[in-house]
């Protein structure tokens, strides 16, 4: 119906402008990360990429031990995402396929959980880490993040759309619950699993406050804190070419995860908002 050509042209122009404005900060970060120190410091700033990205990245990498920080971030993000997804699948299976006392506690529980973001409980949680001797360990970086009512609700909603006949037939045939879980439930949840993986991976990769608080050894730091260190290591003249190279490295992986899982991610989100 509303198919005026001018209308479409305007939409295209608007979108291109918006894409450029949104990308602008990263584009300039990218350009600067390819410049030599001298070129990164001229005014007016240079708008054309140079050829120094590799050497800048290597310098950033060496300066704050980025290789290790990168691996730490990768490790904790994958571990937390995988464990969270596993525990959520298990809990959602319990809530949807069994009758038990406490079954209707899911919503109160998720409501309370949402009321407790880390900052409102950070002091005792930190003291708990001391008590457990978990300061400067992967335990501190991962275990407190393992439970997710977000994930439970996401899977629950999806499990409720699975035709009941399926589990009825399985029960009539005497299939054990856990076998049904592994052979039916988990495989058909693939899309939701990937969607949740993207969400949890990026969530964990971006963590800043908690790693800052529970880690003070150079080897256990995460990459986000590495950015702060790159900035702090500069007192007089910040070497923006090196700092931006570090920043690009820090944003690469979550971006990659988003791109790889893009399709199932969008599908998973769409499924969620569709009541």
């Amino acid at each position: 119906m509303v198919k005026r050509r001018g209308h479409k042209l305007i939409t295209h122009i608007l979108l291109i402008v918006i894409v450029l404005i949104t990308a602008f900060p990263v584009l300039f970060a990218l350009i600067t990360s390819t410049l030599s120190f001298k070129d990164a410091f001229v005014f007016p700033p240079i708008m054309i990429p140079g050829g120094h990205f590799i050497s800048n990245a290597v310098e950033a990498w060496n300066r704050v031990n980025m290789g290790r920080l990168f691996l730490n971030s990768l490790f904790i993000s994958i571990v937390v995402a995988v464990v969270k997804i596993t525990l959520s699948l298990m809990a959602a299976f319990a809530f949807t396929h069994f009758k038990f006392v406490g079954r209707n506690l899911l919503f109160p529980m998720s409501m309370i959980t949402q009321m407790l973001p880390l900052p409102v409980r950070i002091i005792p949680t930190f003291e708990l880490m001391n008590l457990f001797h978990w300061i400067n360990t992967y335990y501190a970086l991962t275990v407190p993040f393992f439970a997710s009512t977000t994930g439970i609700l996401l899977f629950r909603q999806f499990f409720l759309t699975i035709p009941r006949d399926l589990s009825d037939a399985a029960r009539v045939d005497g299939v054990k619950p856990m076998r049904y879980f592994f052979q039916v439930i988990v495989p058909i949840s693939r899309t939701n699993i990937s969607a949740l993986f993207v969400i949890e991976f990026i969530f964990m990769w971006s963590q800043y406050l908690w790693p800052l608080v529970v880690i003070n050894s150079a080897n256990m730091r995460v990459i986000q804190i590495g950015l702060k260190m790159l900035l702090a290591s500069e007192q007089i003249a910040p070497e923006w070419n090196i700092i931006m190279a570090g920043t690009i490295i820090a944003m690469l992986f979550p971006l990659l995860v988003l791109i790889i899982f893009r399709k199932s991610f969008s599908q998973g989100i769409a499924m969620q908002t569709d009541k």
Partner: peptide
């Protein structure tokens, strides 16, 4: 794609800009 940005990354980029 900005969904993949972390608070620290956006902070660093804006500090630079």
């Amino acid at each position: 794609w900005p969904y993949a940005l972390s608070p620290a990354v956006s902070g660093a980029i804006f500090r630079f800009l």
